[in-house]
Simulated scan of single mutants.
Amino acid sequence: MKKLMLAAGFGGVILFNASTSALAQAGHASELKYGKYGCTASKYRGGFYEYTPRGSFTINKNGTYTYQGFEKPSAGKFSVDKTGNLLFSGGYLDKGKAEKIDRPNKFFLVFPTNPDNRWTCSCTDK
């Protein structure tokens, strides 16, 4: 039997914004849900999975994002590729990718400065 452990950790907020024209060109405007996404890092250690909250991000329609998890928020831009993945430029998530997975409104987020390798992010807006 596996136990689940919750670990407190860095609780930041990431804000993403996507331009309507970029999404329309990629054909994913109707698929992308704008709103707040909560992120969690998971790590298998000592026979248990630890789940560490890593903040959240919000996707807006204007093509910018803001990562809020530091004293001073970090801003940048993002685009959506043909498969619905989010690609980031500038800010804390620079050169990062939120890869769309098989569940609605859920992504695996990977970026160069990510200490946990990959976060799972799910939409929290109803």
Results as ranks from 00 to 15, higher is better:
Met1Gln: 12
Met1Phe: 13
Lys3Arg: 08
Leu4Gly: 11
Leu4Lys: 10
Met5Thr: 14
Leu6Gln: 09
Leu6Ala: 10
Leu6Ile: 12
Ala7Ser: 10
Ala8Asn: 12
Ala8His: 14
Phe10Lys: 11
Phe10Leu: 14
Phe10Ile: 14
Phe10Met: 13
Gly11His: 14
Gly11Phe: 13
Gly12Thr: 09
Val13Cys: 12
Phe16Asp: 05
Asn17Lys: 08
Ala18Ser: 12
Ser19His: 03
Ser21Pro: 08
Ala22Phe: 01
Ala22His: 00
Ala22Asp: 05
Leu23Tyr: 03
Ala24Leu: 10
Ala26Gly: 04
Gly27Phe: 04
Gly27Ile: 02
Ala29Asn: 07
Ala29Lys: 08
Ser30Ile: 06
Glu31Gln: 12
Leu32Cys: 05
Lys33Ala: 11
Lys33Leu: 15
Tyr34Trp: 12
Gly35Ser: 07
Gly35Met: 03
Gly35Thr: 01
Gly35Ile: 06
Lys36Gly: 08
Lys36Tyr: 09
Lys36Glu: 08
Cys39Pro: 02
Ala41Val: 07
Ala41Arg: 05
Ser42Val: 15
Lys43Val: 14
Tyr44Glu: 08
Tyr44Thr: 13
Arg45Ile: 14
Arg45Thr: 13
Arg45Cys: 07
Gly46Lys: 14
Gly46Gln: 11
Tyr49Met: 09
Tyr49Ile: 15
Glu50Ser: 07
Arg54Val: 15
Arg54Tyr: 14
Gly55Glu: 04
Ser56Leu: 05
Phe57Arg: 00
Thr58Arg: 10
Thr58Phe: 05
Asn60Met: 08
Lys61Gln: 15
Lys61Val: 14
Gly63Glu: 00
Thr64Val: 08
Thr64Ile: 07
Thr64His: 09
Thr64Glu: 02
Gln68Val: 08
Gln68Met: 10
Gly69Tyr: 05
Gly69Phe: 01
Glu71Gln: 11
Glu71Ala: 13
Lys72Ile: 12
Lys72Met: 09
Lys72Glu: 15
Lys72Ala: 12
Ser74Tyr: 12
Ser74Cys: 10
Ser74His: 12
Ala75Leu: 07
Gly76Thr: 01
Gly76Asn: 01
Phe78Gly: 03
Ser79Val: 11
Val80Trp: 00
Val80Met: 00
Val80Ala: 06
Asp81Pro: 06
Lys82Gly: 13
Thr83Ile: 10
Ser89Ala: 15
Ser89Ile: 04
Gly90Ile: 01
Gly90Cys: 03
Gly90Met: 03
Gly90Gln: 06
Gly90Lys: 03
Gly90Arg: 03
Gly91His: 04
Tyr92Arg: 08
Asp94Thr: 03
Lys95Thr: 09
Gly96Phe: 02
Gly96His: 00
Gly96Thr: 01
Lys97Thr: 09
Lys97Tyr: 02
Glu99Leu: 08
Lys100Ser: 06
Ile101Tyr: 07
Asp102Trp: 06
Asp102His: 11
Arg103Ser: 15
Arg103Ala: 15
Pro104Gln: 15
Asn105Asp: 14
Asn105Gln: 13
Lys106Cys: 13
Lys106Val: 07
Phe107Leu: 02
Phe108Leu: 12
Phe111Pro: 00
Phe111Gln: 01
Pro112Met: 01
Asn117Ile: 13
Arg118Lys: 09
Arg118Cys: 11
Trp119Gln: 04
Trp119Asp: 06
Trp119Lys: 01
Thr120Asp: 11
Thr120Asn: 10
Cys121Ala: 01
Ser122His: 05
Cys123Lys: 05
Thr124Trp: 08
Lys126Asp: 11
